[in-house]
């Protein structure tokens, strides 16, 4: 007997059929799925004719994009204003809260500068004087509140300072 004859003998046996109740149990569970599949077309105010694909309204996408651009522009303007008017700050070793340093036409300002990373980049020599170069990374968090409208503008700006610290040679 070769392998194909043996396979043929095995295939002659038919797997037992499941109980008739199994298909009913499956049918009872599957319609819920189909309802989910067809639900979007039922929610439309005007039911589309057969074969017509309902397109999402273009206006809502444009409006969303415009709104996003406006918010991004406003954030960028505020960030530019603060960065241009910011006084040079000494490195802050730990999170601190500074008092409001600016007041822009009725808005209160709070700035938190948080040191999130510091890297020792080794010794460098400036005019034969050894100095340790430190790279300090901060995250500045600005919160502006308009007391008249209650609107709050909050944004974060990363900042990186390179600090040279004198090293005393003994």
């Amino acid at each position: 007997m070769n392998e194909s004859e043996f396979e043929h003998e095995l295939r002659a046996l038919r797997p037992a059929a499941p109980a008739p109740s199994l298909v009913k149990r499956i049918a009872a569970e599957l319609p819920a799925t189909h309802a989910i599949t067809v639900a979007p077309s039922r929610t439309l105010d005007h039911a589309p004719a057969a074969g017509v694909v309902a397109r999402p309204e273009r206006g809502s996408t444009l409006l969303g994009l415009l709104r996003g651009l406006l918010w991004a522009g406003a954030g960028a303007a505020v960030a530019s204003f603060i960065l241009l008017n910011r006084e040079p700050q000494a490195p802050v070793p730990s999170p601190t809260t500074t008092a409001p340093s600016m007041a822009v036409s009725g808005t209160a300002d709070e700035t938190v500068s948080e040191l999130i990373d510091s890297t020792d980049e080794g010794l460098i020599y400036d005019q034969d004087t050894p100095q340790r170069q430190m790279r300090l990374t901060y995250l500045e968090r600005h919160v502006w509140t308009n007391p008249q409208t209650g609107a709050v503008i909050e944004f974060e700006v990363p900042r990186e300072d390179i600090v040279l610290m004198p090293v005393a040679m003994q």
């Binding site: 038919r14 797997p15 037992a16 499941p18 499956i26 599957l30 319609p31 309802a35 599949t37």
Partner: peptide, 20 residues
């Protein structure tokens, strides 16, 4: 949904004993 229903039922008739 009727089309889908026919789909899975055809599949079931073909495969149920084998899957079991």
């Amino acid at each position: 949904s009727n089309h889908t229903d026919a789909h899975w039922r055809t599949c079931y008739e073909q495969l149920a004993p084998k899957l079991l």
